[in-house]
Amino acid sequence: MISKTLERYTEHPEEEFVVYGHRACQGCAEVLALRLAFKVFGKDTILAMATGCMEIISTPLPFTCWKLPWIHVAFENAAAVASGIEAGVKILMEKGKIEKKDIHVVAIGGDGGTSDIGLQALSGALERWHKFTYICVDNEAYMNTGIQRSSCTPYGAMTTTSPPGKKSIGQSTWKKDMPKIAAAHNIPYVATACPSYPYDLFAKVKKARMVEGPSYLHILSVCPTGWRIPSGDAIKYGRLAVETGVFPLYEVENGQYRITHNVKSLKPITEYLKGQGRFRHLTNDTISKIQERVNLEWEGLKFQCGVK
């Protein structure tokens, strides 16, 4: 069993595939997530990327921070492009045109490119059972175009298209549960991760790499620019998201849910919300509404995982 062998993953791979030469904002946890993830994916990896922050910052010609084959096509189709690459590599190997080895295909999209415009392509690729990993680097809004809401923006958050005011509390809908949507395709491996927990992230990437079939990783990537927090606090807020239950770390392996970082008692949600400019306008009523929802979802997840 893969899970047994990787229960305690403490190895820190040395080789880097996301290197210097990018233009991410100061304190960006999203590019950190990619850096950590690709240490584990290794060199036999082909990448398809959707339009988004990571596309823009990682390839400002003549520079690039990628040491891997990389393609950007459009906003909605990273998963479809990855499908084509995976099928192409497979057939070339079958025909003996290229050397037979374990080449892994990875598609990357932001929360907008995954949960909004790219959902159709993602669903298609998961259903067709391509052997690839889809990574959603979720910074909870369209940061690349200047902080517009996406369906992964949390309830109450201020963005430029969900401005709070007399007639609006900010984002008025609850965050779309992308990992559950991916898991509903009954694919071999789905997990949530956060670069604030690097070893947990390494282990999950390793599993995603090893399974036969599609895998999906949802990585919460704190965005100091868009969340209106000091640029040194990205790791802290990543931890708080997990400790307050806003973003639990779990995995779904062949339909089995498992919490990978159990939190004995959740910290109050206020610890996570305070200090974030995007939640500054929230009233106590809204905060308790969010707290209720977080508790409910946490209990639901514990039930699914069989944790008391």
């Binding site: 517009q148 809401r149 369906s151 298209t161 005011g165």
Partner: peptide, 29 residues
């Protein structure tokens, strides 16, 4: 849907439309 260089129109209308009882929706694509 957000896109450079037209995003300002959406951003501004997300504030202005509710003021005149209009509706602003950000769609998925």
């Amino acid at each position: 849907y957000p896109i450079t260089p037209a995003t300002e129109i959406a951003e501004l209308l997300s504030v202005r439309l509710p003021q005149v009882d209009g509706t602003f929706i950000q769609m998925e694509d």
